[in-house]
Design a protein around this nucleic acid. Structure first.
Lengths: 329, 329
DNA sequence: CTGAAAGCGCTTACAG
DNA sequence: CTGAAAGCGCTTACAG
């Protein structure tokens, strides 16, 4: 019932090679036969099957995005940038979701081995140097987003600087006892952001107090959730002596934090991180990461490499920007 | 460099058939050769290629989600339910994003023809009856989410009832002049929600006033955005005589509406729609759609059909639920 | 501009 | 438990 290239060739009175050429736009087909083939194909509802094409041509015009959790605001924004570029370049998108429960490296390695896609976009996949080197051996085009390793193209934002800017902003506004609403400490972005926070305090000659860095108890998605933020802020508000202001590791946690302040009736200025679309509407001061741009640019970069494999490896690092809104007034 | 089944077979001193069997868990392989093959494969970093497997076996353990816009809160939640089920069943996920600029039917048809996946999940893809019937001819497993057509399995929520419940809720609270913050009128969910809104007014003997149904001017994503909500609420707040309360077509629009009220200093009770995770933290009353459950269940349904193609077609319709929070106090 | 033929890397009856 | 061989539906030099 589903027709193949043989059926079309037969009905159109040409060889399968010609049918293939028609669908691949190899110019060397006469207008006449082209029209004929297309008509027959349309009639039969025929289109080359991806798997057969992929096997025969060794490429499939597909890019695979490998992400830790699909339903997260950060990935959503990055993905939309990816989508835009992919659509423009007529590539298809595949998404692979590594599960938190399994070994990340093994999952990633498995995906690459299967050769699903022509190229891979790794979003917020954090591995150690040895593992990245091992992945290089597969000699597959990979672009890293929100991660840095000199052996692959990468697009990232300076997390240390972002956290530093947020903290300095609070410090300059006159607040001295500043808490950091954190998340799972082992996560790389958190480690960097804590470092930036520390660096700012240091510059102002203030001591770094372990107890001012607090996270919630819900560690789903490493604690980067409304709930994680809510729980942490509840704790922060009971700190003694009271805290003057708070730097939150993400906007989504800040949303929870805002709720915690409302519920307890205690308010302190807060700054978030990411600048997700919502932040503007919630009046949340934040550190902007150009998420869409990152996705867009990383994709462009990857496709360039697909077309020119010997292209020099490039590292792109964006500078995060402090956006002041009402939450710090 | 990348090794194939032939390399592994040779190094392990067996036939390619045996290697294939090892990777497909067909039990009839001795422990000994199995171990040997696996060792060689591991050493060589080998894993069967999806495209070759897909072509030879005519199946690829992949489900494709076809969505209108990937970065949207509703899809995000639905997708996370899909992911959970897929991971459990060891299927892979592919996402195809139909672009608003093109003809939806053609894009969808194209995807099906290419036979990317074993089965398809259509999320919020609205076609007319004739088009659905045409799609049936391809005889491909499809499950509809947030759409209804008797020829395919479907999982949806009763939008009319949801809007009805929201409006009745406002009416019972004593508000009479109720606006509806709407979006692109041609969108199917909007048509249904307007119908439910109308039905509730009718039940209370109130007239339906065209001018009380307003949308913003930004129609990106059919107006289901913070901005769309903001713009619409600004208009609503200038209506004369003033409106008593407002039913918003989505939570994300309600976020924009909240901001509009803050900016203008005029406040009216509002109810959103969806119950995205944020709603709870923003104290937003809303109509809950079990988004994750819908994704999860639709996926389960699809996989069952994959395993048993002659299974009877089923329609699942969830009942939306009114959740009251502070935005209606 | 077009066709015959080899090949892509697997799976799967069919034998044994 | 294992192998030889056909076949999946395409693409792509190679000829002409």
């Amino acid at each position: 019932m589903a027709s193949t290239i043989y059926d079309i060739a037969e009905k159109a009175g040409v060889s399968i090679a010609t049918v293939s050429r028609v669908f691949n736009n190899s110019s060397s087909v006469s207008e006449k036969t082209k029209t004929k083939v297309l008509a027959v194909a349309e009639e039969a509802g025929y289109h080359p099957q991806v798997y057969a094409q992929g096997l025969a041509s060794k490429k499939n015009n597909t890019v695979m995005a490998v992400v830790p959790v699909i339903s997260n605001y950060f990935f959503m924004e990055v993905l939309s940038g990816i989508q835009d570029k992919l659509t423009e370049m007529r590539y298809e998108l595949n998404i692979f979701n590594v599960t938190a429960s399994g070994n990340i490296f093994e999952q990633v390695e498995h995906v690459i081995k299967r050769r699903w896609a022509d190229g891979y976009l790794f979003i917020s996949i954090h591995l150690d140097k040895k593992q990245w080197i091992q992945l290089q051996k597969y000699n597959v085009p990979i672009t890293l987003v929100d991660e840095y390793f000199e052996g692959f193209d990468s697009v990232s934002v300076d997390n240390i600087q972002g956290a530093y800017k947020a903290t300095i902003g609070l410090l300059k506004a006159g607040y001295a006892r500043i808490a950091m609403l954190s998340a799972e400490e082992s996560s790389k972005p958190i480690r960097d952001r804590v470092a930036g926070y520390k660096m700012a305090l240091n510059e102002f000659g203030l001591p770094f107090c372990e107890e001012l860095v607090v996270r919630g108890d819900t560690l789903y998605r490493d604690g980067f959730t409304e709930r994680g933020g809510y729980e942490a802020m509840i704790k922060i508000l009971t700190l003694e002596p009271p805290v003057d202001a708070c730097f939150c590791a993400s906007d989504i946690q800040a949303v929870g934090a805002l709720k915690a302040m409302q519920d307890t009736g205690k308010f302190i200025p807060i700054i978030g991180y990411d600048d997700i679309e919502l932040a503007e509407y919630m009046g949340l001061s934040t550190i902007r990461q150009p998420m869409r741009d990152m996705g867009f640019f990383a994709t462009q970069n990857l496709i360039e490499r697909l077309k020119n494999p010997s292209k020099a490896i490039s590292q792109t690092i964006y500078t995060p920007e402090l956006i002041l809104r009402s939450s710090t007034n």
